[in-house]
Amino acid sequence: MAAFMKTIFGVFIFSLVFGLFPVRAAGQSSADMVDVVTPYARASLPGVSMGAAFMALKNNSGEHHYLVSAESPVAAATEIHGHVMADGIMRMRKMVGIDLDAGHTRLLQPGGFHVMLIGLKQPLQQGQSFPLELIYRDGSRDKVTVPVIGRNIPE
């Protein structure tokens, strides 16, 4: 009986230790499963303390993830914004979050979603980069370095 209990206990310990891996794999954090691809911001303009960061968010998992906010030390406030173009009118609004559908890539790009940097403490200068943290609904965070590119639009 004692040997039996020992075996049960052993199995329990075994599953506790090794079982953690499959358990984790089934519910990995959003930060683990979402790749942040080619982030960038454009150099800020003279006299303007607003900026925007763009990137692609690639959800590699079979599950849905959700971006809820962002933080950056370069701005007084960092928010997630989206644009809607309707009847020729551009409307920018603060978003509660951005849906990241399973297996899909969501683009944050001009005219669409962006991470809005409000109250820049210093101008964003071409060639520099700044830290940005993306925060998902599960509380996990992606630390991103955002390079600042020039203002010129390619022809």
């Binding site: 005219g111 962006h114 022809e155």
Partner: peptide, 17 residues
């Protein structure tokens, strides 16, 4: 407007280009 973070700079960038 100047504090427009994205739409106006994009359009003025296109105009300049």
């Amino acid at each position: 407007f100047a504090s427009c973070p994205d739409v106006c700079p994009t359009s003025l960038g296109i105009m300049a280009a």
